[in-house]
Design a protein around this nucleic acid. Structure first.
Lengths: 109, 109
DNA sequence: CTTTATCATCGTAATATTGCAATATCACTT
DNA sequence: AAGTGATATTGCAATATTACGATGATAAAG
């Protein structure tokens, strides 16, 4: 065993986990910060900025992209990585909604 | 090789990742929802509710606890797992702050 | 003091993640 | 067509995570 049991969880719980996984590594937190901080979505600079090798950055970008949080043109010499702001906002809503629901009632010891 | 490089990241990025890791597994999302939904912080029922073995639930609880999100009396027959609402709110603030900062400026393609 | 119920811990197997070197790909230039 | 620069893919080693059975610890009940 070692693989996550998905069948016992709800679609919402799995979705939360998938989004959270994006931020569950400091490199990806850093990458997203950098992408958003640049008006002109520079790409290869992420490698220099974050301090990991190019293949490793590429791998992290795939994880972020798989969650639908990236947007832009992915072909050509200079690839433009942009934030998918719409998706990002949706995710923010999901987190906030979950957080607010969770903080509902609790025994106060 | 396998372990996360921590030295190249900021304290904030690492903190974000640590909190996000809590929600990066559907079982922990489910556990937190359950704990918060019960006024009386019942404990062993989590095992029945979530559908994983008792040791596995215990392991997940440790991860949540390590992030400081749990509170209560941890001794005796009936252990009372409660949400650390204060810490939870702090975390929510951290996420919201990060999200809002990140959605700042981006090329619009 | 023994039993019982409730959790935690240990040990272990299966799988996933992280990171990099080497290599491939792909578009543009010359 | 060959070269160049930028990114993706592959393959591998090291480590982390997930899950569970077995066992240990502890408090309440008998």
């Amino acid at each position: 065993m070692g693989a996550t049991k998905l069948s016992i969880h709800t679609r919402e719980q799995i979705e939360m986990a998938q989004f959270a996984k994006v931020f569950a590594h400091p490199a990806r937190v850093s990458i997203l910060q950098y992408i958003a901080s640049q008006d002109s979505c520079i790409c290869g600079d992420i490698v220099d900025k974050v301090g990991l090798s190019q293949p490793t950055i590429s791998q992290h970008l795939q994880v972020i992209n798989a969650a639908g949080l990236l947007k832009g043109s992915f072909k050509g010499k200079t690839i433009c990585y942009c934030l998918n702001v719409e998706k990002f906002r949706q995710m923010q809503e999901l987190f906030n909604s979950y957080f607010n629901k969770t903080v509902a009632s609790c025994c106060n010891i």
